[in-house]
């Protein structure tokens, strides 16, 4: 793993991209890394553009914002179109298979059926964010599995804990 990894998770409000960033960041802290997680969302509760950014480093992190990211996770067409130009050429791109138009890119591309899996296997598309995290960790190993599971457990309410852990496991099979 490189010394500093910048991840951007983007989609629509209500898709859980902010929570996904929090879980990823918390897991990296459990792995002993320096982490800054920030988020940006609209004034509306749902439907507007939302993104979450996580910087993971072995060193202290000064500037807290992502400029060129190493990893882009796109959960909506709008998010992909908006942020793909900020993905590094040798970066990694994960897109939900709901997204139909994927621009040409030099980045390593993974099409992940996160929303589909969440709906079919877990019965609710709201778990797509955590399914996506499973795929992300499978492909990049930017945090340990143990740290992710611990972070998921501590980031979601008890009644959906098992479902989220299952979502993560389903994601690990994808990617």
């Amino acid at each position: 793993m490189a010394k500093r990894i910048e991840v951007r998770i983007a989609g629509l409000g209500g898709q859980g991209v902010v929570l996904a960033g929090q879980i990823l960041g918390r897991a990296a802290v459990y792995d002993g890394k320096s982490v800054v997680q920030t988020q940006s969302y609209g004034a509306e509760a749902r439907g507007s553009a939302a993104k979450s950014e996580v910087i993971i480093s072995d060193n202290k992190i000064a500037f807290p914002m992502v400029r060129k990211c190493d990893i882009l996770v796109a959960m909506s067409q709008q998010a992909l179109d908006k942020y793909i130009s900020d993905l590094k050429g040798n970066g990694i791109l994960l897109v939900d298979t709901l997204i139909k138009k994927i621009p040409e890119t030099e980045a390593k591309l993974f099409k992940v059926p996160a929303t589909k899996t969440a709906e079919k296997t877990l019965g609710n598309k709201l778990y797509a964010n955590v399914v996506m995290l499973g795929a992300l960790i499978k492909e990049t190993r930017i945090t340990s599995l143990e740290a992710m599971e611990k972070a998921i457990r501590e980031s979601v309410p008890e009644k959906v804990r098992e479902a989220n852990l299952n979502a993560f496991k389903e994601g690990l099979k994808l990617g």
Binding site: G25, V29, S34, V35, V36, Q37, T38, I61, P64
Partner: peptide
């Protein structure tokens, strides 16, 4: 807002 909303160790 940035310091209020960001998460860090």
């Amino acid at each position: 807002e940035i310091v209020g909303h960001m998460r860090e160790k």
